[in-house]
């Protein structure tokens, strides 16, 4: 291995699907090219409906790209979906828990789905219960947990198999201040030379605080990608909201002339 592999790489990724109600084609993604390295936290920033969820769903092999390709840890998501899924931990935007399972059982169930050996699984579950301070409610049914406890259970589930890539779709949406703080701490704690966190958000302050690099996405296109400093330099704006507006203006002017 001469060059370290990229955690995520997409090339001209597009997704067109049919709207079920109107039967119209919807271009959720248009030629999105993106790369994330190991050791960085990458934030995908954009308004609702920009294509963030679609990108993350393609990377987690939920959806197949209409054209272009996407690779996770060097593996094509379309050709080796199961191998890709082994390497990712995915927290969807609407993530929920099985109401009638306890956190411990939830972890055991997903560990079994990952094919973990019972003894190793048992040890790993105990380790996670420690790490996320879950012992107190580990054997209570998920339907009786508080939202913070549920969130810790979901995160523990996502990192159960210690994936090199963590994909989080709007991880702080709908959380209260305390839980949001916990989540931000958790993401920061994952910063590691052999790991990558890719998350989407429309909260600018989160992106400013957490991200090594930021990708700005709008109407299914990646308008810009880089460190906060690079984006500031590129647009001449100080804060992300200004940067975002400047990028949108530039894109619209560009599409008007071509």
């Amino acid at each position: 291995m001469s060059e370290p592999q990229l955690a995520v790489e997409t090339e001209r990724l597009a997704k067109t699907y049919l709207d079920r109600a109107t039967k119209e084609p919807v271009h959720a993604l248009k030629e999105l090219s993106l790369s994330c390295r190991y050791g960085e936290i990458y934030g995908l920033l954009g308004p609702n409906g920009a294509g963030k969820s679609t990108t993350l769903r393609i990377l987690s092999t939920m959806l197949a790209p209409s054209s272009g390709w996407a690779k996770v840890d060097g593996l094509d998501v379309r050709e080796e979906p199961l191998e890709v899924r082994r390497r990712i931990g995915f927290l969807s935007a609407t993530t929920g828990l099985y109401a009638r399972l306890t956190p411990r059982e939830t972890l055991q169930y997903f560990g079994a789905l990952h094919g973990m050996e019972p003894a190793a699984l048992e040890a790993r579950v105990d380790e996670l219960l420690d790490a996320f301070r879950m012992h107190e409610f580990a054997d209570r049914r998920c339907e009786h947990l508080s939202s913070g406890q549920k969130q810790r259970t979901s995160i523990a589930r996502a990192v159960l198999h210690d994936p090199p890539l963590l994909i989080l779709d709007e991880p702080t949406t709908g959380l209260d201040i305390l839980a949001t703080g916990d989540m931000i701490e958790f993401i920061e704690a994952r910063r590691d030379s052999r790991r990558c966190v890719l998350f989407s958000t429309h909260v600018l302050s989160e992106a400013e605080r957490l991200c090594d690099r930021i990708g700005v996405i709008h109407h299914g296109r990646l308008l810009a990608s880089g460190t906060l400093a690079e984006l500031r330099e590129d647009t001449g704006e100080e804060w992300l909201d200004g940067i975002f507006k400047a990028l949108v203006r530039r894109a619209e002017a560009g599409s008007a002339t071509t």
Binding site: R57, L82, R86, I88, F90, T95, G96, R157
Partner: peptide, 14 residues
């Protein structure tokens, strides 16, 4: 309804 479908589908299980 309870939002576990995507999680389940992203497991390394055909």
């Amino acid at each position: 309804e309870q939002g576990t479908l995507e999680t389940l589908l992203s497991q390394p299980v055909p």
